[in-house]
Simulated assay, not measured.
Amino acid sequence: MYNWIWRHLPGPMAVRLSLAAVLLLGFVALLMFVVFPWAEPLLPFNNVTTPQ
């Protein structure tokens, strides 16, 4: 899959590296701002109890 993405990026090596970095940052931003906030209420980590 990564090879397919790399082959379809246009330009010389410097442009490809820049585009790959932008794609990676966009993917991370999508996860941080859309996917993780949506999934947070579904995760059981908020129900923490401590023994007394």
Rank of each mutant, 00 (worst) to 15 (best):
M1E: 11
M1H: 10
M1G: 11
N3H: 09
W4A: 10
W6V: 03
W6D: 11
R7Q: 12
R7M: 10
R7E: 10
H8Y: 13
H8V: 12
L9H: 07
G11S: 07
P12H: 03
P12Y: 04
M13A: 04
A14R: 06
A14Q: 07
V15D: 02
V15Y: 02
L17A: 03
S18E: 03
A20G: 04
A20L: 07
V22E: 00
L23W: 06
L23K: 02
L24H: 01
L25A: 11
G26Q: 04
G26P: 06
F27Y: 08
F27W: 08
V28P: 03
A29P: 02
A29T: 13
L30F: 14
L30S: 03
L30Q: 01
L30R: 00
L30E: 06
L31W: 08
L31M: 03
M32G: 10
V35M: 04
F36R: 05
P37Y: 09
P37K: 09
W38F: 09
W38V: 09
A39F: 06
E40K: 14
P41V: 08
P41D: 08
P44K: 11
P44M: 12
N46S: 14
N47F: 11
V48R: 15
T49M: 09
T49P: 00
T49H: 15
T49G: 12
T50K: 07
T50Q: 07
Q52G: 13
